[in-house]
Computed example of a mutant assay.
Amino acid sequence: MKCYQHFDEREEMIIKYLPYVKYIASRLVAGKPPGLEYEDLISFGIIGLIDAIERFDPTKGLKFETYATLRIRGAIIDELRKISWIPKSAFSKLNYLNQLKNELETKLNREPTEEELSNYSGMSTEEIRNIESYINYISIISLDEVLFKSDEEDVKFKSIIKDSTSPQPDVIIEDNEKQNMLKKAIDMLSEKDKIILNLYYFEKLTLKEIGKILNISESRVSQLHSRAIVRLRENLKKLNYL
């Protein structure tokens, strides 16, 4: 195992890969709880980077950049999870609110305002905001974790979407099943949801960049992103996959 124990060498590695930390933090910043700043996420990420530098083993056949990315992202999300504990009922509440939104959207033929949703649901705007306060937290969780509850650190959304080869037949079958089900579930989404997922996961744009393209706020993009994930889960349930 190669360890960067010399202080100067480790310092050089941190400086070299700091842009990785900043990029990953920028993609997770929408999920930060109140009281935390972008700089806090960078601090969490640097801890992950240092861990990657200390633990990287080049004999495993993994590029350092790939390994560091996993450790940085994992360190930030671990800290956010500690701070932003979310009740078990959060998904059911979001699903229920999402169902009401869909019904009202169909009736109005457009996305309802908060006031319209409040009148339709019988909930106060404060109740709705409390439920939606979970959305940003959910948006920091990778799509594969939300959909498949994977325990493997290096499973990625794109690896599920596109074909991958493996010497293990059971893994190939499982991946193909995930791929087919996910494609079907995505096809059931609205165009707006598809666009959000495509820009975020395939074009690798930040929420801020997506907001500029769609001419909406960064927080609104975060809500749409999380709503798309929730709807994807609902579609997978309809397909009897979850």
Rank of each mutant, 00 (worst) to 15 (best):
C3N: 13
D144C: 13
N102I: 14
T206G: 08
L41V: 09
L207A: 08
N235H: 07
E126N: 07
K208Q: 14
K238D: 12
P34G: 06
R227I: 02
E126W: 09
M13H: 04
N136W: 01
Y20P: 03
S164H: 12
N119R: 15
I77P: 00
F7I: 15
E209S: 07
F7P: 08
D40V: 04
E111Q: 08
E115P: 04
L143K: 11
S164A: 13
P112W: 04
Y120Q: 00
E12Q: 14
H225Y: 09
F157D: 10
I229M: 03
Q99L: 14
E218P: 07
L205I: 09
I72M: 11
K237L: 11
S226L: 00
L104Y: 03
V221H: 04
S166C: 12
Y134E: 08
G122N: 06
D170R: 12
K22T: 10
N235F: 10
E127G: 07
I128D: 03
E218L: 10
S222R: 09
M1I: 10
I53Q: 00
S43P: 01
I76M: 14
R73T: 08
I15E: 13
T66D: 03
K60F: 03
L108Y: 04
Y120F: 15
A52C: 10
I140P: 03
S142R: 15
K204F: 13
I216H: 06
L62N: 01
E191G: 04
K183S: 13
T165Y: 15
I46A: 08
F91A: 01
T106R: 04
I24D: 01
Y38E: 05
I141E: 11
E12M: 15
S89L: 03
L94H: 02
G122W: 02
L70C: 09
N215P: 07
H6S: 13
V171S: 05
R55A: 10
R220K: 13
K183P: 07
N180R: 15
P58W: 12
I86D: 07
K60A: 05
C3W: 06
I46M: 09
S139L: 03
L189F: 02
E218A: 10
